[in-house]
Amino acid sequence: MAVTVRIPTILRRHVGGEPFVEASGATLRELLQDLERRYPGFGGSIVTEDGALHRFINLYVNDEDVRYLGSLETAVKDGDTVSILPAVAGGEHT
């Protein structure tokens, strides 16, 4: 089962500079595990050590924010597109 994953500029160094990669899995978590197996270090940018979605990473399945779906347990299927976007965030609080 192949899902297209759009890789943001900042993470492309993990995947040989590619803007898109294919991955397989039944859920987002499996998909990211597949990517981590093939591109060691990639998954750590997306998933925390506790196995949660990193707070400052936005993940979308077919343009839907997965925080409104099932987060990392969101089901994915052949032909879906997953987009990854680092948050645009900050503030004067230090």
Binding site: Y60, A87, A89
Partner: peptide, 18 residues
């Protein structure tokens, strides 16, 4: 964040404008 000390773009709006 709707905050006086932090900001974060709404993820859905971010994707749309990108």
């Amino acid at each position: 964040d709707d905050s006086a000390v932090t900001y974060r773009l709404d993820p859905t709006e971010q994707l749309r404008v990108f």
